[in-house]
Structures are given as structure tokens and as C-alpha cells.
Design a protein around this nucleic acid. Structure first.
Length: 626
DNA sequence: GCAAGGTC
């Protein structure tokens, strides 16, 4: 018997082949350099010993598109809402990959899909079945087997090979629904906007595109939203009572500044009254309410996800999300780190983490730490686990050591991935927090100091700082009277919200379900390329601002006042995502969801058509006010 | 020429 296995990418195909083939694997090249065909034998519990060929795709093979009658310029953009759709290969490479599957399927008895175990993976599995069926009519979605695996640990992979299931048709439908909705809505609005705006706005050049996308617009919306809050901000005056105390009878002991428990008030008269009350009641004496020392800790980080990697590289190294992901991708292809696109923030219990720590011991910089982690009893700690699991990839971790990365960006990202990994296998930092609370008149004041005891993970995770405060807290007893050495009323103004950073934007997109780990960086780059936002350095930090075009579009779309949806807010994408989940669990169908979502868009499209003048006006106003 | 999602 012969089995054809197909994975989503070569790295999986290679790894699974070597696990199943027990080291006896022969490699054949295909017409695409990064797609190999691996031949070996394996004893399946269902089929006995079989000849196996394992190959791969490189993500999706096909995409949906409109037939030629509906290409740009050949029809009214509104006609796209009832256009037929066709499936076609994503270019010549995809066609070669498809042909390879067709050829390898010809004399196979069984087809086993080894794509990632997520929604897109189910759909890619369906695409693979379509290609295999062209070479072998026995293969259908109902006869294809599906290996279920979440990582590449040997026993887990063997279990997956022995216990295949079927492809999940609901998940396949859900992905197809997303594809069709994104294509129709994106293309209709993009053609519409580009069509009427390109001649009406003077700074647009021939070939400029005013695009709409279900992820692009909410991303732009976040940037505009923060910009508006910053612009509109009116500072407010506030006041607070400040006091300093001294232990009585301690000679030249230092004074200790305390913070008012109420923080600050926006009513000057009220603060004056409270202050006067205190002076009248207690004059220059206050009483210690409590002095407490509690153990505290600073938590080691969770295992690393893509979004965290991008946020941290942006924060620590001022790297763009795209540069960080590109560097991680290169490191992965070079075999230094694990797969860099993952949402999973806990390691599988069976994974041998010390094996990967061991690999880092040759390093001059962190080798000693890695060595201690393995050899000093009690140093290693099984990492805490987060609540995210994409069921497809483990957290990002180093798999091999290198000290020779000539590319500085890759070197930084590699070092970060290693330090983060060693840190999450370490104990939390510990310390103690002392808090002093004092009552003066009717008001309470406090201060606290930190004493760091053990750095633990912070020794290797040099990006985070946590140190003992040099504030001195006097040795006083509860109930003890202390002297007020200074008292007064301080004032200040509230500060505007800070400009949006890329780190914050990534976090907003992640929290609101805009894009995925692999695409968040692309959406940001896309709206920069479209001239909707700019990235600029202000006082040492990189911040994001809308252009007048981006601002005008968001303003125009929000002034149109769509009934049920806002195209510049994240809720519509969230709604689509919820509906896709319903398709997956069987509580909705593809036709229902397409109809419901596309009806909303059709309505929005009609309204936008009636309000071209308004959109242009908003863009002009934005330019004038810039 | 348009989207978003995979991956190289």
C-alpha cells in the first residue's frame, strides 16, 4: 500500500518524515526549491507497513477571484455583490506545487493531510484534496485522512499517524466564507473609492489606490481615534496635598515624602479646605496608621507568541513589527529558532525544554546562565502557561545555538528569543514591599519602598528593570506620632494621551481580533503604503499619525452614519469572526452568513455612493486643517 | 491595479 502525506510547509514535512521514517528517508526534489518529496516506509496501525511519500504545499495553493467579465473597469463595482466567483491557483509557483501533488497522488492508495490544525489548515487540506483528485479520482474530502497534531514531539506525531480523523467541513466552509466576503467587500469599495477620488483629490497620482479592507480600515480607525483624542484634549488643573514626615527624637534623620491617598482633586477650594482642616486639627503632628512589609514578586514572562515578539521588538529595539517578523522568519529558515507564527503561550508538558537550554551553553553572553539552569538544582522552573493555544504550533523558542549572525536585526531578535526562553524557564524575581501609611487630620498619606531579594529570571532577561528603591522608610510603630516637617498644596495639569506607538497598535489589533499573528504587521505596512498613516520619530519614540487622506476617509465614513455597522471600527470584523466560529460549530451555514454580512455591506455601499461629496469634503477639510 | 489568509 502507498500513502501520500501532504503538510502545509516543508519544515513540517521534513520533520514528520524523519520521525515516521526513523531516519531512513530519501529525498527527491520537486520543481520548486522549497518543496521536497520524502520517501520512506512506515507501519500504520490501520494499513500495516506502507510506502510513504510526504510532500508539502506553501500555504494556500488557490484563491477566489472574479471571472474576467468582472475585472476592474469592466463592470460597476456594485455588480461585484452578485458576481460569480472562481477558484484559481495563486500564480505559477502554486501551480507547480499543485502539479506535484497531482503527480504524487497518481499511484497512492491513501491520502493523509498534515496541514496545521487550525481553520486555515482545514481549508488548505481541502485545496490539497482537490489537486490530488485530479491525479487520482479515489480521493475526495470524505476519503482523505487528516492527521491531528499540535507540535512535532515524536510520540505525539506517531499518535497522529496512527489515529487520523477527517477534514472538518465546517471549518472549510468558514474559511471560504471569509475569502468570499473579503474579496467582494474589498474589491467593491476599493474600486469605488479609487474611481471617484482619484480625479477629485489633487495630490493623488495616477496609479494610486484608495483601498478598503476589513482589516485595513479598523487599523486606520485606531490611529485616527488616538490622534483625535490627542488633538481634542483640553488640559485640566488639579491640586493635591503634599507632606513630608520625620520620626520624632531621631536627631538628624531624613525626612520622608508621602503621597496623598486621594491622589488629586480638580477642585482647588476643596483641597484648600481639606488642608486647612488638617492644620487646624493636628497642626504639625501626624500619626502612623500602619507599617507593613509584604513579600512581592516580579513575574517571569510567559512563553513567546508572535504578537508578543513584535510588541517587544518594537518596544525594546524600536523595530517595526514587519522587520521583527521578517528577521524571525529568516532565523527559522536557517534552523535557529522554531516556527515564528504562533498564538500559543504554553509549552506542551511532554516537551524537553532542557534539551533546548543545553544548546545555549556555548554562548559567551548567556551560556553560564543556561548551564546553571540545567545543572544547579532548583534553578529550572517549568514555564507558566498562558491561556492561548492555536493548536498548531508551540511557543517560539531557540532550537540551535549561533554566535555568528552578521545581520544585526536578526542578531537582536535571536538574542531576544533566547533570553526570553531562558527567562520563562526561570523563577520569578522576588523582593519585599514596605508600605507606610500615616494619618494627618482627616487625610491619609502613604509611601512604599521596594527591596529586591533575588533577581532570578531578570539576570538573563536584561530588557526589564526592577530595582530596589532608594527611598528610606523610617523605623516607626503603628500609633506612633511623627512630625510634619513640610506640608503644602501642589498643583499640575493633566497630560494629553500619548501618541500611538506601533506596540500599542499591535496590542489593539490583537485584542480586537483585527488580522492574525502573521498578518498584523502587513496591515500596518499596507496603510502606510496607501498613504493613510505615517510613522515618525517624536522625542525618541516612533509614533503613528494619520495623513489628511487617512483622517478624511475615517471622518467621512463616520459622518455617513451607517445604520448597523461602522466600517472604521473593529466591531464588524469581530462580528464576522463570531459568525465564522458559528459556521465551525455548526450553528450557522455559509449561505446564511454570506447573506447577512453582504446585505450589511450592500447597504453601506449604497450609502457611500450617495455620499461621495461628503467623503471628499472631509478629505479636503482634513487637508486644510493639517 | 482591488481583500485577507497561508508561506518562500
Amino acid at each position: 500500500m502507498k500513502v501520500l502525506c501532504v503538510a502545509e510547509k516543508n519544515s513540517i514535512s521534513k520533520s514528520v518524515s524523519h520521525t515516521l521514517g526513523g531516519g531512513r528517508v530519501t529525498t527527491r526534489n520537486s520543481s520548486i526549491t522549497f518543496v521536497k518529496n520524502y520517501d520512506f516506509t512506515f507501519e500504520f496501525s490501520n494499513w500495516g507497513r506502507c510506502d510513504v511519500t510526504m510532500t508539502c504545499v506553501a500555504g494556500h495553493i488557490t484563491g477566489v477571484d472574479f471571472p474576467s467579465d468582472y475585472r476592474w473597469g469592466r463592470c460597476d463595482p456594485g455588480a461585484l455583490y452578485h458576481a460569480p466567483l472562481q477558484v484559481q491557483a495563486n500564480g505559477t509557483n502554486a501551480q507547480k506545487i499543485a502539479d506535484n501533488i497531482k503527480k504524487e497522488a497518481r499511484n497512492a492508495n491513501y491520502l493523509m493531510i498534515w496541514t496545521d490544525c487550525d481553520r486555515e489548515g482545514e481549508y488548505i487540506g481541502w485545496e490539497i484534496v482537490q489537486e490530488a483528485a485530479k491525479g487520482n479520482r479515489n480521493f475526495t474530502v470524505d476519503t482523505a485522512f487528516r492527521a491531528q497534531f499540535a507540535h512535532l514531539e515524536r510520540n505525539h506525531v506517531l499518535h497522529a499517524a496512527h489515529n487520523p480523523v477527517r477534514l472538518d467541513k465546517n471549518a472549510i466552509d468558514a474559511v471560504r466564507t471569509r475569502m468570499e466576503i473579503d474579496l467582494i467587500t474589498g474589491s467593491s469599495f476599493t474600486r469605488f473609492l479609487t474611481g471617484f477620488m482619484k480625479n477629485a483629490i489633487h495630490y493623488l497620482k495616477d496609479g494610486d489606490i484608495i483601498s478598503y479592507g476589513g482589516c485595513q480600515f479598523p487599523t486606520l480607525g485606531f490611529v485616527v481615534d488616538r490622534y483625535k483624542r490627542t488633538k481634542r484634549f483640553v488640559p485640566e488643573d488639579f491640586w493635591h496635598i503634599d507632606i513630608s514626615i520625620k520620626k520624632i527624637g531621631a536627631g538628624h534623620s531624613k525626612k520622608t515624602d508621602l503621597v496623598w491617598e486621594r491622589g488629586r482633586l480638580f477642585d482647588k477650594l476643596a483641597v484648600l479646605c481639606l488642608y486647612q482642616n488638617c492644620v487646624n486639627k493636628d497642626n504639625d503632628r501626624a500619626r502612623v496608621q500602619s507599617l507593613q512589609t509584604k513579600p512581592t514578586s516580579n513575574w517571569a514572562p510567559l512563553p513567546l507568541t508572535t504578537v508578543e515578539l513584535q510588541k517587544d521588538c518594537s518596544r525594546f529595539f524600536r523595530m517595526s513589527a514587519k522587520d521583527a517578523l521578517d528577521a524571525a522568519e529568516k532565523l527559522y529558515q536557517s534552523g535557529f529558532v522554531s516556527y515564528p507564527r504562533t498564538e500559543t503561550d504554553s509549552f506542551p508538558a511532554a516537551m524537553d525544554l532542557k534539551h533546548f537550554i543545553q544548546k545555549q551553553t556555548p554562548s559567551d553572553a548567556w551560556g553560564q546562565y543556561a548551564n546553571d539552569l540545567i545543572n544547579v538544582p532548583g534553578k529550572f522552573r517549568q514555564p507558566r502557561g498562558g491561556r492561548h493555544d492555536d493548536k498548531a504550533h508551540p511557543p517560539i523558542h531557540p532550537v540551535a545555538f549561533t554566535a555568528n549572525l552578521s545581520n544585526p536585526t536578526q542578531a537582536k531578535v535571536y538574542e531576544y528569543i533566547v533570553r526570553r526562553f531562558l527567562a520563562c524557564c526561570s523563577h520569578d524575581a522576588t523582593g519585599s514591599q514596605t508600605t507606610l501609611k500615616v494619618k494627618w487630620g482627616t487625610e491619609s498619606f502613604f509611601t512604599s519602598g521596594l527591596m529586591v531579594k533575588e533577581l532570578n529570571y531578570l539576570e538573563v532577561y536584561t530588557y526589564r528593570h526592577w530595582s530596589s528603591s532608594n527611598r528610606e522608610i523610617p523605623a516607626v510603630e503603628p500609633g506612633e506620632e511623627v512630625k510634619i516637617s513640610k506640608a503644602g498644596i501642589g498643583s499640575g495639569k493633566t497630560a494629553p494621551p500619548p501618541k500611538l506607538t506601533e506596540t500599542e497598535l499591535i496590542a489593539l489589533m490583537d485584542r480586537n481580533g483585527i488580522g492574525t499573528d502573521a498578518t498584523i504587521a502587513e496591515h500596518i505596512e499596507k496603510i502606510i503604503a496607501r498613504n493613510y498613516i505615517t510613522k515618525s520619530k517624536e522625542r525618541g519614540t516612533t509614533v503613528l499619525n494619520p495623513t489628511s487622506l487617512g483622517y478624511g476617509l475615517v471622518e467621512g465614513f463616520s459622518q455617513i452614519g451607517f445604520d448597523s455597522i461602522s466600517l472604521t471600527k473593529p466591531f464588524l470584523r469581530k462580528k464576522l469572526e463570531d459568525k465564522l466560529k458559528m459556521i465551525c460549530d455548526g450553528s450557522a451555514t455559509k449561505p446564511q452568513v454570506c447573506q447577512e454580512i453582504l446585505d450589511m455591506y450592500r447597504e453601506a455601499f449604497a450609502l457611500a455612493n450617495q455620499n461621495k461629496r461628503l467623503i471628499l469634503q472631509c478629505c479636503e477639510d482634513a487637508e486644510r486643517n493639517a
